[in-house]
């Protein structure tokens, strides 16, 4: 029996897209790793649900998760904002206006961040009213946590942009950090739980990830009413702040390096 032409045409599209996909070797590898890490991290999270909670924040799991998701929704657009806006036409033209590179990056993030702040509130309202999440918010600590988080994520955006300008594709460093976040940054379970499922001291690794501090400080401020007058709380905020202070100049330098490198290679207009 003759195969209908329509089926052959659909097969032609599929074949074309498969061959195209295989040419993006990095994307192919990262997609496969994403699947593995994704399955693993949600598996760990699911097993955590069965455990007694309150190890780090003296709170219940639903509250912990609601705040985590809300924070994730708030900070991730900071990195994604630049990625969406970054194309050669915009970059070349905007740089020719004489504006500074950080202004270009922050300018491209601003609306995403404002929009995320607006959507952050419904997340919390639904979480508290529908799912019974209990928040115990300390306003000054929350504001400081958001400021430190924004600085950390801004640094990440600088690094991501700087590398993307050079590689013209997903930058491997930001990808690695983002993928590790699912497992180690404590989005869906407290990082101390890593000691239980891996080995004693495994959670220490997570403190080297910038996102861990973003989630940790926000949860301290929003779940435990952590006051900045408490020396223990203050120390946590100082550690997070130190992370931001170290990362910001590094991010700025990576961004400047990326633009300079791209101008040197004549590839600023490529992507």
């Amino acid at each position: 029996m003759e195969i209908p032409i329509q089926l052959k045409q659909i097969a032609a599209f599929t074949k074309r897209d498969f061959f195209s996909w295989t040419t993006y070797k990095t994307a192919m590898t990262t997609q496969l790793i994403n699947i593995l890490i994704g399955v693993f991290s949600w598996g760990v999270a699911a097993s955590y649900v069965q455990k007694p909670v309150a190890e780090m924040y003296n709170s219940d799991y639903v509250s912990f998760l609601v705040v985590g998701i809300a924070i994730g929704n708030l900070v991730m657009p900071l990195v994604q904002g630049v990625e969406r806006q970054l194309n050669p036409w915009t970059l070349e033209t905007v740089l020719m206006t004489g504006i500074s590179i950080p202004v270009f990056v922050i300018g491209n993030i601003a609306w995403n961040y404002i929009f995320s702040v607006l959507t952050f509130i419904p997340y919390l309202l639904i979480g508290t009213s529908v799912f019974g999440a209990r928040l115990d918010v300390n306003i000054p600590s929350t504001i400081l946590a958001f400021t430190i988080s924004a600085a950390i994520m801004m640094s990440m955006a600088f690094i991501s942009t700087g590398l993307r300008i050079v590689t013209k594709s997903t930058d491997p460093i930001t990808w690695a950090i983002n993928i590790l976040q699912n497992l180690f940054a404590g989005v869906a379970f407290p990082v101390v739980y890593l000691d239980t499922i891996f080995f004693q001291g495994a959670s220490n690794l997570s403190w080297f990830l910038p996102q861990t501090w973003v989630y940790h400080l926000s949860r301290l401020a929003m779940l435990t009413n952590a006051s900045l007058t408490d020396p223990k709380v203050l120390l946590e905020f100082l550690k997070g702040g130190l992370f931001a202070i170290i990362l910001l100049p590094i991010g700025y330098r990576v961004l400047r390096w990326g633009v300079a490198r791209s101008k040197k290679e004549g590839t600023l207009g490529w992507y």
Partner: peptide, 12 residues
């Protein structure tokens, strides 16, 4: 080409 843009690991 002056730079292969499809393989970021190689490029970086």
């Amino acid at each position: 080409g002056r730079h292969s843009s499809t393989d970021s690991f190689v490029a970086i």
